[in-house]
Amino acid sequence: MSVTRRLILRTAAALPLVAAGARFAPARAATTLKISHQFPGGTIDEGDFRDRLCRKFAASVTAATNGELDFQIYPGSSLMKTNAQFSALRKGALDLSLYPISYAGGEVKELNIGLMPALVSSYDQAVRWKKAAIGQAFTKILEEKGVVIVAWVWQAGGIASRTGAVVNPADAAGLKIRGGSREMDLMLKEAGAAVVTMPSNELYIAMQTGAVDAAMTSSTSLISFRLEELAKNLTTGRDRAFWFMLEPLIMSKAIFDALPQNQRDAIMKAGEEAETFGQEQAKKDDAAVAEIFGKAGAGIHDIDSAALEKWKAIAAASAWKDYADKGESCAELLKLAEAV
Rank of each mutant, 00 (worst) to 15 (best):
G192Y: 09
G67K: 04
I141T: 06
G237V: 07
Y99S: 06
A274S: 12
M251Y: 05
Q279L: 14
D185G: 05
T163I: 11
S77P: 02
T4Q: 12
V120F: 11
L246W: 06
A126N: 00
T139P: 03
C54G: 07
R238E: 12
A88G: 07
T4D: 09
V195F: 04
M80F: 08
L111A: 04
I113N: 07
T276D: 14
K91M: 11
R240L: 12
A165C: 09
A30Q: 11
V127N: 11
I177S: 04
P199L: 02
A13R: 12
K253M: 02
A206I: 03
K284D: 12
E332F: 07
G271S: 05
K326W: 12
G271Q: 02
L227Y: 02
E309F: 10
A282C: 11
L98E: 03
A84Q: 14
L33D: 03
A307F: 00
N262Y: 09
L89V: 04
A298P: 03
G135L: 08
F242T: 07
A165I: 08
M207F: 00
I314G: 04
A287E: 15
V61N: 03
P169A: 09
F138Q: 02
Q38K: 10
I8F: 14
A27K: 13
A84F: 13
M216Y: 07
V153K: 03
K253A: 09
S36T: 08
F49S: 02
K232W: 05
A88D: 05
G327V: 07
A19Y: 09
I303R: 00
K81V: 12
K284P: 04
D286W: 00
E328K: 14
I250M: 05
D286L: 10
D322E: 13
L111N: 03
A319D: 04
Y123I: 08
G192L: 09
R178H: 12
F24H: 11
V147L: 01
Q72H: 14
R128I: 06
R264M: 08
N112C: 08
G294I: 07
E228D: 14
A104V: 06
L246G: 01
Q279Y: 14
L98H: 00
V167L: 04
A206C: 10
K131D: 15
L9K: 07
A25Y: 08
G47S: 08
G67I: 00
K140V: 08
G278S: 11
S2G: 10
I134C: 13
A215M: 04
F71R: 02
V108L: 10
G164L: 04
G210E: 06
T62R: 10
I300H: 00
P75E: 07
Q155C: 13
S200Y: 00
D239C: 10
W152M: 01
I303H: 01
K81C: 11
I141H: 06
S77I: 04
L334D: 00
D325I: 09
K56R: 15
K284A: 15
E247P: 09
A258W: 02
G174L: 07
L53S: 07
E144H: 05
V153L: 15
L333I: 06
K140A: 15
G47Q: 08
D45F: 11
Q279C: 12
A317S: 14
F49D: 00
N262K: 09
L94D: 00
G297L: 06
G179E: 01
I73H: 03
V195K: 03
R90K: 13
I8C: 15
N112I: 00
